[in-house]
Design a protein around this nucleic acid. Sequence first.
RNA 1: GGAGGGUUAGCAUAAUUGGUAAUGCACCGGUCUUGAAAACCGGCGGCUUCGGCCUUGAGGGUUCGAGUCCCUCACCCUCCGCCA
Length: 424
Amino acid sequence: MFDIRLLRDDPVAVKAAMARRRADVDIDAVCDIDGRRRSAIYALEQLRARQNKAGEEIAGRKRTGQDAQDVITEMKSIKEEIASLEDQARQVDDDLQAALLALPNVPDASVPEGVNENDNRVERVVGEPPAFDFTPKDHVEIAERLELVDFGRAAKISGARFTLSLGAGALLERALINFMLDIHTGEHGYNETLPPLMVNSASMQGTGQLPKFSEDLFKVENTDYWLIPTAEVPLTNIHRDEILDVAQLPLYYTAYTPCFRSEAGSYGKDTRGMVRVHQFNKVEMVKFTTPESSWDELESLTANAETILRRLGLAYRVVSLCAGDLGFSAAKTYDLEVWLPAQNTYREISSCSNFTDFQARRANIRFKRGKKPEFVHTLNGSGIAVGRTVVALLENYQQEDGSVRIPEALQPYMKGKTVIANQG
RNA sequence: GGAGGGUUAGCAUAAUUGGUAAUGCACCGGUCUUGAAAACCGGCGGCUUCGGCCUUGAGGGUUCGAGUCCCUCACCCUCCGCCA
């Protein structure tokens, strides 16, 4: 939720922030609604004060056995006035809420200028892409030849953009999930959770998916349940409408969950394979922090995600999203992009963001250290996308005979296997 | 799915026939003390144009006035049914 005070105090700065994002929003209109709301509420409160005074008068007279009919008659007419003012106030308040919910977060000063992903800034490049003395195959060909994934039958069972992992392919996903969770819980201090995969509308609004982005989500018919597009939603909403003690902060949570995305608007993009699917597995990390520590926490969160890629020996780079490419709720985002030999490029495998107090305002997540409760800062990052990690492993560790080596760190999770070869 | 009971501040508990939310614990500040405890005093939800206004799970309704009466919904507990 956008802080209305920022708007009242410095509308020029807010306009500049929205321009950096290329957000199409009318800040003057929002300021105007805010002004009308405040005067409507003031008028309403004046009337209510009279009504409360009259109520005391009536109660006092009745207690002493006097007649109060004249005051009651007067209050009957005020009642109608109040009702009409209440309607006005409610209308303008709804308008303001809707306007504020539609405003994206303010980008941090360190976020690079730019319009789209071409303007993202490469922060660092880690590891060497592997050199092949043969032409590397893409993950679809590798997976099908090794019978790790059956795309045809997945389409029969469900439809396009679904996967059916089998045998060593299914084991590989399970191994990666356990590998990632063990590192985040054992070494990085995250609390393991297994959250609901369906959440209500209030939770979706709390993290910013609703009301603007419902077309990206799957809704369960005849209910108020939505399938989560990321574990960020249930994890961040763990503390919705709560006041935490400052001593509890920072709080770290991690979870493995399937994620469900409609991928509306991506027709024709990544139609092949398991890079862009309606259901994929992901390990997610979420942090609740004090405002002053959230920027350091973003760096360590990103480092936690990088640890997974390093242990698996995958080459990657870290990019800072430019203002125009930033997600709705984020103040700053680092994407981790893993090297994919068959595409001869880096592809997103993790996204780590600081949402500052934006989600905390929407979800009403506060902490107390003085007299007044303050909003926490929330952060989250993929730690990391499991399906795309499978893609990266298959492509980077493939051998000329079609088999795939298993990185050493993962072997204990793969029943000691060192290589996935054709079982036939 | 059916029946019954419940939801009041961080926690716990009150509120005559409807009359405008009381109290305890915890917590914070102060007095006292070498320090602490105890005791005592004050504070202890949000907003405010500092006049006030709002706050009893959510939203409606009746009423001059609703924690209280009526309706819808959410969640929790007990039992029955169904079920991995």
